[in-house]
Simulated scan of single mutants.
Amino acid sequence: MAAISWPSEGPPLIAVVGPTGTGKSDLALALAEALDGEVINGDALQFYRGMDIGTAKMSVAERRGIPHHLLDIMDISGEASVARFQADARAAFDDVAARGKVPILAGGSGLYVRAAVDAIEFPGTDPAVRARLENELAEQGSGALLGRLSDVDPQSAARVKDDRRLVRALEVYEVTGRPFTSFMPHREYVRPTVQFGLDMEREVLNERLAQRIDRMLEAGWLDEVRSLEKRGLRGSPTAGKALGYPQLLDVLAGERTLEDAREDTVVATRRFTKRQRTWFHADPRVQWLDAGHPGGVDALARDAVTKIEAA
C-alpha cells in the first residue's frame, strides 16, 4: 500500500472494535503493518498474565514483530480499572505518536475503549466516605439514603437500581460536590480518531465462536485454568469471572463435566457478543466492515485504509 500523507497534526488514532471472535486482533495487526503502526490492547481480560488461550491473546510470534502495548500488565489477583486504563492507554497513544507511528487500539471491552477515545471524566473515590455510607445503609436502609440522594441529585436517584450504585452516587457527591450525572460521558473524541467496527451475520458468528471455543479446549485451555487456579484465579475479582474460566474451574472442582462447561461457555459467549453489538452499534461514528469478507483480513485492511485516506 502507498504511504498516506497525514495532516500536519499527524495521523489519527485508529480503533478496531466489535464483538468477540470477529478478527479484531488480525485486522489491527494488518493495519499496523500497512500504516507503520503499533497496537494498543483494549481487551480488559488480556491485561492478565497467563490468561492466554481463553482470551485468544496473540502470541509473540503471531504479532510478527509489531509492538503491542498493555498486554500482560496485571497479575490475576488484580482488579481491572477503567480509570487506570484510560490513563495508560492515552499515555501509550502519545508515546506511539511521538515516535512517528500510528496508534491502533483494538478490543471489544466497550467501556474501556470508550474511556480511551472519548472525553470521559472519572470521579474520585474515598474509602472512608464509602465505608461510612455503607454503614449508614446497613443501619438506616436504602430508603433514607435514596431520599438524601434525591435532594442533591434527583437524576441519579431516579436511575439507581441497586445499593452499590446508590452508595457510589452519594460518595461522588460528597467527594466532588457534583452530582454523579454530571460525569456522564458524551461522544467527543479527545484526539482525532477513526473507528472501525467488525461484525458478521449472527448465525455465522455463533458457529465461529463455537469452533473457536473447541480450538481453545484442544489447545489446553483446561490446563491453563488449572495453572491459574494455583495462582488465585478462583478468588480473583475480575479474571476469575472471565468467559469460560468459571465454567472450567467447576470442571476442576468436579462440579460439572467438560462438555457441560463447553456448552455453557458457548451460550455465555453468544450472550456477550449480543451486548457488544448493542454497545458498539449505538455509536454512529463507527464505520462497519464485514468480518466475513471473502478476501479475508488483507481485503478488510485495504478497505479500512481507503476509508482513512478519505477521512
Rank of each mutant, 00 (worst) to 15 (best):
Y112G: 10
V113T: 08
R114S: 12
A115F: 03
A115D: 05
A115I: 06
A116P: 08
A116Q: 11
V117G: 07
D118Q: 15
D118G: 14
D118T: 09
A119W: 01
A119T: 02
I120A: 13
E121D: 10
E121W: 06
T125Q: 04
T125V: 00
T125L: 09
T125S: 01
D126I: 15
D126Q: 09
P127F: 08
P127H: 14
A128V: 10
A128F: 00
A128Q: 11
V129Y: 09
V129W: 05
R130A: 09
A131N: 04
A131L: 06
A131V: 04
R132I: 13
R132M: 13
R132A: 10
E134N: 08
E134L: 15
N135G: 15
N135W: 13
N135R: 12
E136M: 11
E136T: 06
E136N: 05
L137T: 09
L137H: 11
A138N: 00
E139H: 14
E139S: 10
G141Y: 15
S142L: 07
S142G: 14
G143T: 05
G143C: 07
A144M: 07
L145K: 14
L146E: 05
G147L: 00
G147W: 04
G147V: 00
G147H: 05
G147N: 00
R148E: 06
L149K: 01
L149S: 02
L149N: 04
S150K: 10
S150W: 11
D151C: 13
V152A: 15
D153K: 12
D153W: 10
D153V: 11
P154M: 00
P154K: 02
P154R: 01
Q155W: 02
A157C: 00
A157P: 06
A157F: 03
A158W: 03
R159Q: 12
R159D: 12
R159K: 13
V160L: 08
V160K: 03
V160P: 02
K161W: 01
D162E: 06
D163T: 02
D163F: 01
D163Q: 01
R164F: 05
R164L: 12
R164S: 09
R165E: 11
R165P: 05
R165I: 07
V167S: 04
V167H: 02
V167W: 01
R168Y: 13
R168W: 15
